[in-house]
Design a binder for these strands. Sequence first.
DNA 1: ACCATGACTCCAT
DNA 2: CATGGAGCCATGG
Length: 109
Amino acid sequence: MNFYQSVYEIVRRIPKGRVATYGQVAYLAGNPRASRAVGYALHRNPFPGEIPCHRVVNREGRLAPGFAFGGPGIQQELLEAEGVAVQDGYVDLTKYCWHPEKEETHSDV
DNA sequence: ACCATGACTCCAT
DNA sequence: CATGGAGCCATGG
């Protein structure tokens, strides 16, 4: 379960107006290839309010397929509410890709 | 330990 | 672009 815990803490650290990919979280969790397990972790233990699952997207910046932690489209609305431009379920990773090592020192949005 | 599942990712058709 | 198959990993029965 340590893996899940790592995932939760990492996702929790994602700054507002930013998004991280499953691969990114998996990598930080200790397994760059556990992207699948990452998604599984969030699905099984999505601590509401503590883990911004909506900031976690797949490698293309694509949101979850239809459903997610609340309902279809919710993720997109949440991201837009944070300043993340979402298009057809896609976010601009070139702009919103989270940099865990930089720790966001200018999170303005 | 084995089998089945899944918010993933890659490749082929 | 849609669908199917395979590989990857962690969890649960």
